[in-house]
């Protein structure tokens, strides 16, 4: 069935249409939630909350294409995750000691699978992970991230750079692509 008709029927309260939409986007949204929240149970709970809000506010949503709808749903999920993290007060900014600069082979990075990249992101500390997700994956600006997380813009920038350094370190530890360790 077409997504437009599905949304129309879901607006009228059709359970079948709602289930079809849930089946369509649940996996991707669960992945998104898991990128922000480590625990699987928490991610599932956030997924349910997000979908619940999505179906409840579907009446006010004017459909302008699948991409717009996907973005709206994604935004709902991200907000749910950030709210959850704020509630738990886990935005403790980790100050890592100056990481060693590592140069990674580009070919080796290309060979990294999606699962490996996902696992790498999940292993990052909460502060790094959130900033990295918002900036790199979602494409938000530092200003926007600072507002969402309740931190300064400078902190957001520093957290991102540290997250990158840590990622390189993790990659090197895994022995995926280690070229050179710059001696200080």
């Amino acid at each position: 069935m077409d997504i437009t008709t599905l949304i129309k029927e879901a607006k009228h309260g059709s359970t079948a249409a709602q289930k079809a939409l849930f089946d369509m986007f649940a996996d991707k949204m669960l992945l998104l939630c898991c990128r922000y929240v480590k625990r699987r149970e928490d991610a599932e709970e956030l997924l349910l909350d997000g979908f619940y809000k999505f179906f409840k506010n579907l009446q006010s949503f004017s459909y302008q294409g699948e991409a717009a709808m996907y973005c709206w749903l994604k935004r709902i999920m991200i907000n749910e995750c950030l709210m959850f993290l704020r509630k738990k007060n886990v935005f403790t900014i980790v100050t890592e000691s100056a990481a060693e600069e590592i140069v990674l082979e580009e070919e080796a990075l290309n060979n990294l699978s999606a699962d490996e990249i996902f696992n790498l992101i999940v292993t990052l500390p909460v502060g790094y992970r959130t900033v990295f997700n918002l900036f790199v994956v979602e494409g938000m600006e530092h200003k926007e991230i600072a507002v969402l997380m309740g931190i300064s813009e400078g902190t957001s920038k520093s957290q991102l750079s540290k997250a990158r350094v840590l990622l390189q370190k993790l990659l090197s530890q895994k022995g995926i692509a280690y070229v050179k360790q710059k001696a200080q």
Partner: peptide
Amino acid sequence: LSKKLNDPFYWKNKLETL
């Protein structure tokens, strides 16, 4: 740092395949 790590499309594309 590696140029690939700074590229947002790299991460996005990789994650979208998942």
